[in-house]
């Protein structure tokens, strides 16, 4: 599904991705964890074609990325920050993206009712609360039934009910055989949603494997503790300094 070989990316002097290799098979739910500025978002953005790698090869569904764009028909992406043109009405935004994708929005109604977006449809995006904007983002990501789903910090702004519904939805997508990629700082959430973990530290993959394996190796019961232990065990003087520098991406 996704195959990444020796991926490098620098922003100016700052090396963000330092030779990443990653193979994510079809139907796998993978959580990407790592400290702020470790390169999680950059990795996802590179797969989406938003960021152009300095070197390395990415294949998505056996299509090699080289500035092409059709492969994104199979991807639904929910960004970390959901900001839309203020004067646009929710319904128009949905219509607009539908027109861009030229695919049938099979899950549109379903997602709207699931996230209780019905009453928000005729409001302009300016007056929408942050959480509702996140829900709109989730709807946009999933309504075309894409085979690959990327969620960047999806539940950060959601209330417990919405967050619960969102997780339910992602579990359903998983069962339908979707390949799911989630970055999150909420470890309990990842424990629920994913079965594989990619741990990124300072632009490199420090761990990639199944959740159980990770817990076993670190002799921990919870993901949070296992990750914390790994972060302690890989001392890297550069991390602290870089954290503040990379936040702009």
């Amino acid at each position: 599904m996704i195959r990444i070989e020796n991926l490098h990316k620098s922003f100016g002097d700052l090396e963000v991705l330092k030779g990443m290799n990653l193979h994510i098979p079809k139907g796998q739910a993978t959580g990407i964890v790592g400290p702020n500025g470790s390169g999680k978002t950059t990795l996802i953005k590179t797969i989406l074609g938003l960021v152009k790698p300095d070197s390395g090869v990415i294949h998505v569904n056996d299509v090699k990325l080289n500035g092409n764009w059709l492969y994104r028909q199979d991807i639904g992406y929910m960004p970390q920050v959901a900001r839309y043109p203020e004067n646009m009405i929710v319904r128009e935004l949905l219509e607009f993206i539908k027109g861009l994708r030229n695919q049938e929005a099979v899950f549109e109604e379903e997602l709207i009712s699931q996230f209780n977006l019905g009453p928000e449809l005729d409001k302009s995006l300016r007056v929408l609360s942050g959480g509702n904007r996140q829900k709109v983002g989730a709807t946009l990501a999933m309504m075309f039934n894409p085979q690959l789903l990327f969620f960047d910090e999806p539940t950060a702004g959601l209330d417990p009910q919405a967050s619960f519904k969102f997780k339910k939805r992602v579990e359903k997508e998983k069962q339908d055989g979707k390949t799911v990629l989630i970055t999150s700082h909420i470890m309990s959430e990842l424990e629920q949603l994913v079965d594989h973990v990619v741990f990124i530290l300072d632009g490199k993959i420090r761990y990639y494997g199944s959740m159980e394996n990770l817990l076993e190796e670190n002799k921990e019961e919870r993901l949070e503790a296992a990750i914390a232990r790994m972060m302690e065990n890989s001392p890297d003087p550069g991390i602290e300094a870089r954290e503040t520098e990379v936040t702009f991406q």
């Binding site: 500035g67 764009w69 991807i75 960004p79 900001r83 993206i97 983002g137 946009l140």
Partner: peptide
Amino acid sequence: QSREFVELLLTQPINR
């Protein structure tokens, strides 16, 4: 003003 929106559009199947 449209940074995030343009980013969202770039994740759609459309060329730059």
